Simulated scan of single mutants.
Amino acid sequence: MTANDKKKAFINIGIIVLIIAIIAGGWTYFANETKTKSSDHWYRIKKSKKIKIGLDDTFIPMGFRNKSGKLIGFDVDLADATFKKLGIKVEWEPINWSTKEQLLNDGQIDAIWNGYTISAARKKKVAFSIPYKKGTQVLVTLSKDKINSFADMKGKTLGLQNGSTAQTQFQQYKNLLKKYVKGTPQKYDTFDKAFMDLKAGRIQGILVDSMYAGYYVKHLSDSQDYKIIYGGYPTDENGVGFRKSDVKLREEVNTVLKKFQQNGKMKSLQEKWFGKADSGLK
């Protein structure tokens, strides 16, 4: 083989290697892109124009049924408005609140949007949107029981929702309420059942989100018979819960929520349902 032939052979080999490298690189990119699209459900949701959101449909005023059975509430309005901007219709799915993260990660729902408090423990299971509402945990009692502080719950029975932030913070902040109440709190699937037991005298207090307590008590015919007591639980923030793989879906929702925080939409919805809005909203 002449020197010229060797040179041509070397060039040909180089071209073949380059082609193989380009093909391999393209295939890797395609595979990664396909993997991303298959693991991020945004592409399915965008194509079908539907998203399934899980909620406790008794959680006033975030998501609940009115007298005619229609689903209404702050989170219902906010989620519907958010996905309307994205050209997607929300399909609301009532769920057992204590299994919400499992239902999300099993693919039975696409998001949790229902006064869902952001916490370190929950961040291990889901990816949260930006915060969109602030709240805290309060104690609701009957005025006739003369309970004016957490200390007045000494030896009395407390109720709370199973799987709720109230349950988590009751255990976490032992010196606030836990050190006073009798035994283990009575757990309920929904807070409306806890209020029935409170009125019947089977429990003497309910630890519940301040937004729920304020709205629920205000709309009772005998609201003057109830008392809401603040006792030092920290301010917490609500967010939307997504699967950790749904990066694009979360980004799309965050973009709309940020717009709502700037253009007055978030403020108007908070004023509609809570009578006032969080500070800092335009």
Score class of each variant (00 low, 15 high):
A3Q: 06
N4Q: 09
D5A: 02
I11D: 00
I11Y: 02
N12K: 01
N12P: 00
G14F: 03
V17N: 08
V17Q: 04
I22A: 06
A24V: 15
G26L: 05
F30A: 14
E33R: 13
T36I: 11
K37V: 14
S38Y: 13
S38L: 15
S39P: 15
H41W: 05
I53A: 01
G63E: 02
N66I: 02
K70P: 04
L71R: 07
F74Y: 01
V76Q: 00
A81Q: 02
L86Y: 07
G87H: 05
E91I: 14
S98Y: 12
A111L: 00
G115P: 06
Y116A: 02
T117Q: 03
I118V: 14
I118T: 04
A121T: 10
Y132S: 05
K134R: 07
Q137P: 11
V138N: 06
L139K: 02
L142I: 06
D152S: 12
K154H: 13
L158S: 07
N162Q: 10
T168R: 14
N175R: 08
K179V: 10
T190I: 15
F191K: 12
K193G: 06
A194H: 15
G205Y: 10
G205Q: 07
L207S: 10
L207Q: 13
D209H: 08
A213V: 11
V217Y: 04
V217D: 07
D225I: 05
Y226G: 06
G231W: 05
G231Y: 12
E252A: 06
E252D: 07
T255K: 09
G264V: 06
K267A: 04
S268W: 02
S268L: 01
Q270V: 03
K272N: 01
S279E: 06
K282T: 10
